[in-house]
């Protein structure tokens, strides 16, 4: 009778000089596993054409208790200013490449900081808010995806400040996850965000806001 497997015990053994890599691969190769006949992909990869994608996106983001603002290119700056003011932000970090005209509505009450040269994490942690664009957004799941491209900054920027305002242009919104994946470059660091940070670890009672930004504002332009 074998003893129960103890995590500390090497059970696999192997020939002298055999690397773990060789051993694992050899063990797999010792068993012939037939491949599946085919991979059926009969699921939906786009939304039905009668769905208003922007409307669906706005509704799904709001479901996560993020604040959704609808804007036009004409009143975008005012909407951004309004969103930051509404969250009581007094300092703001601005990623490189963010269109300058998004910020022309900001009053003098908000201190602006650039991340060039890079701020320390301590400095970022002390900043109230961050504003970013995004790479793509998904209507069906209410998700925004950041890829650290222009106007988004490195990942820490949208993580440490407690308020995140994200501007989404209409043409960045796709219907389904499949369409978003097709637009994204997997070699960039990607952050998929669906609402503010949340936990249900206490009695399955949902609390918005743990470690990530506790306040998420999504401004949809178009």
């Amino acid at each position: 009778m074998a003893e129960p497997l103890e995590p500390g015990r090497i059970v696999t053994g192997g020939a002298p000089g055999e690397t773990a890599r060789d051993a694992v691969l050899a063990r797999i190769r010792a068993v012939a596993v037939p491949p599946p006949a085919a991979i059926p992909r009969d699921y939906l990869t786009s939304l039905s054409p009668d769905v208003d994608i922007l409307e669906r996106f706005a509704e799904r983001v709001a479901d996560y208790r993020a604040l959704v603002h609808r804007a036009t290119s004409g009143n975008l700056a005012a909407t951004v200013a309004e969103a930051l003011k509404g969250r009581g932000a007094r300092s703001l970090v601005i990623p490189a490449g963010l269109p300058a005209d998004w910020l022309i509505g900001l009053g003098p009450g908000i201190e602006r900081q650039s991340d060039d040269p890079p701020l320390t994490y301590g400095q970022l942690d002390a900043i109230d808010a961050v504003i970013t664009g995004c790479a793509v957004a998904i209507a069906e799941t209410g998700t925004i995806v950041l890829d650290a491209g222009p106007g988004q900054g490195r990942r820490a920027l949208s993580l440490l400040p407690d308020r995140h305002v994200c501007v989404v242009r209409a043409e960045q919104v796709v219907g389904e996850v499949a369409e978003a994946l097709a637009r994204l470059d997997p070699h960039r660091p990607l952050t998929w965000i669906s609402g503010p940070s949340a936990t249900s670890d206490i009695e399955l009672d949902r609390v918005e806001g743990v470690h990530g930004p506790r306040n998420l504002d999504v401004v949809i332009v178009g």
Binding site: Y64, R154, A156, P186, P189, L190, T191, W192, P196, G212
Partner: peptide, 18 residues
């Protein structure tokens, strides 16, 4: 949920980020 709040994806290392 339709989607969990955060999903992080990374490929190797990215200079200046993470």
């Amino acid at each position: 949920e339709r989607m969990n709040p955060y999903t992080s994806m990374w490929t190797g290392v990215t200079p200046g980020d993470g």
